[in-house]
């Protein structure tokens, strides 16, 4: 489903990704594991189209999207800080990625993430876990081909983290979503993914 070939990205002269190769199968959930600063987020952003590399390719469902901007790649991303729009309520955030917002679908998704009835809640009133789920729901409603999750559970405490990891896996599997989950927490990685990829295996860049 997803093929990354020879991804090479540098920032201010420093090489972050050096000819990275990655491949993820259809409906597979993969965890990218590695310590902070090793380039996991960069790789994710590269796949999403938010970072430019020198050379290298990204193929999604066989199609070369390397020259497409993020909005055209059908790649969803859940950010570490969630990036929920504060000027919209929960329903507004959820509707954002939908081509034609449908209240039914929004209600349905809120049910799936266990936040039924949250449509008119303001973002600043959400707890950490609630925000996570809204962010996930938002990305899912945009129906991306690939979903990228950038350590979304990092700021939660242990119990919540693991519980949510289970929930997230269930939702993704139910829908057959292909996903890459970036984390430095091995426990979470095990809970959520089918396959764990160590960053050190895919990149030759120095930390």
């Amino acid at each position: 489903m997803l093929e990354v070939k020879n991804a090479t990205v540098s920032f201010s002269g420093k090489l972050i990704l050096d000819a990275v190769n990655l491949s993820v199968g259809d409906s597979e959930i993969v965890a990218l594991l590695g310590p902070s600063g090793c380039g996991k987020t960069t790789l994710l952003r590269y796949i999403a189209g938010l970072e430019k590399g020198s050379g290298g390719e990204v193929l999604i469902a066989g199609k070369d999207v390397s020259n497409l901007p993020p909005e055209k790649r059908s790649v969803g991303m859940v950010f570490q800080n969630l990036a929920l729009f504060p000027h919209l309520d929960v329903a507004g955030n959820l509707a954002f990625g939908m081509v034609i917002p449908e209240a039914e679908k929004i209600a349905e998704m809120l049910g799936i993430v266990n936040l039924a009835g949250f449509q008119e809640r303001k973002i600043e009133t959400l707890s950490g876990g609630e925000g996570q789920r809204v962010a996930l729901a938002r990305s899912l409603l945009a129906e991306p081909t690939i979903l990228l999750l950038d350590e979304p559970l990092a700021s939660l405490d242990e119990d919540l983290k693991l519980a949510l990891a289970e929930d997230v896996r269930k939702i993704l599997k139910d829908r057959g979503i292909t996903a890459i989950h970036v984390t430095h927490d091995r426990q979470v990685a095990k809970k959520i993914s089918d396959r764990i990829i160590e960053m050190s295996e895919v990149t030759q860049a120095e930390d």
């Binding site: 938010l50 993020p70 909005e71 950010f79 729009f85 954002f96 081509v99 991306p144």
Partner: peptide, 12 residues
């Protein structure tokens, strides 16, 4: 990240 999130949600 707000703008980036919007773009990953497919917004032009």
């Amino acid at each position: 990240s707000y703008l980036e999130a919007a773009r990953t949600l497919g917004a032009s």
